[in-house]
Simulated assay, not measured.
Amino acid sequence: MYVDQHVYGDIPLAGPGYLDDPARWLPVRDWEPSEAGVHRTYTYRDGPALPPYVPRDMDVILRALLREALDRGGFVCLVGEGAAGATRAAFEAVRTEAADRRVLAPRAPSHLALLTDRPRPPVSRAPVIWLDDLERFLVPDGLCVEVLGELVRARFPVVATLDIQSYEALTASRGRVLYRLLHDSRGARVLNYAPPIRLARRWTPSELARARLSEDRRVREATRYVRAPVAEYLAAGPALRDRWESGWRAGGTRAAPLSSRPPSTSPVPDSPARIRVNSSSTSTGSTSSTAAVTGWTWWPRRARRTL
């Protein structure tokens, strides 16, 4: 059973067994960022897989709302652009404020409704329900405002992240018609349950100041590129680096270092002047400045879309 049998009795319940066995729910203290959905970043030989978390300005509000949800149940939703750092911020908030709890990430949208049929746990033992990429659960037989209300009344803290494009499509009066039809307007009602917290893509001066003091050189390097948001730069690092070092071909154009030395381990160059573009349509290897600029600007745009 979900809780002690001598208290709640041995009542057979339908559904996947993991919902009734808290031993199969991961303790928050053992929860890994990759299991939560946090983007990986490029690594150095002498550094950890992820850089230390740099506090964001909205952390104060996020963690205050999370504490309220832990005390009496609630819904906390963090909205931001892809690779803006929303999942990492929510993960760090849960790991700090709910270190003595367990985390339950539903394996299917329909499992959320099954949770409402389980005996209510003591509030101090209720697991954190983790819904990264909330739009995945806003489907028929998935999360709706009625199920969310029952979970909150059962004292479950529900923590979700949502990308800004899905949020705008669900809440805008003239959102994408097909998207709204597929989700049966349930998303707009769920988001109306509690005001979401917005995470800006661009870092504030105070956030950048904290990042510049980081002990991790990846974070310090990211602050040098004013045009690239820090979290997005870190998240896009692996994809960009893999393509840069392998000379990945795209649309008949390949970018390669000017020199013949081994691939550099420094951040990807920020100027088209530092790359050479070889056209597959010519045998002379001539360089076109227009092709260089086109090939270079395609890279970060394409990489961001894959994250």
Rank of each mutant, 00 (worst) to 15 (best):
V3G: 15
D4W: 06
I11L: 14
P12K: 07
W31F: 15
P33G: 10
S34F: 11
G37K: 13
L50R: 09
P55Y: 08
R56T: 05
R56I: 08
D59M: 09
A69R: 01
A69M: 03
D71M: 10
G74D: 05
E81I: 07
A86R: 14
E92F: 01
R102C: 01
R102S: 00
R107T: 08
R107Q: 13
L115I: 05
L115E: 06
P121Q: 14
V128F: 01
V128D: 00
V128K: 00
W130P: 05
L131Y: 03
D132P: 14
D132Y: 05
D133G: 08
C144R: 15
E146S: 15
E146A: 15
F156R: 04
F156C: 03
A160I: 01
A160D: 00
L162M: 13
T171C: 06
A172I: 00
R176P: 13
V177N: 09
R180P: 04
V190G: 03
L191G: 08
A194V: 02
P195L: 13
R201G: 11
P205W: 00
R212G: 06
R212K: 11
E215S: 08
E215I: 02
V219P: 01
V226T: 12
V226G: 01
P229Q: 01
P229W: 00
R241Y: 08
R241E: 07
A250K: 04
G251M: 02
S259A: 10
R261H: 07
R261A: 12
S266A: 13
P267H: 02
A273H: 11
S279R: 14
S281G: 09
G285K: 00
A291T: 12
G295W: 11
W296F: 14
L307D: 07
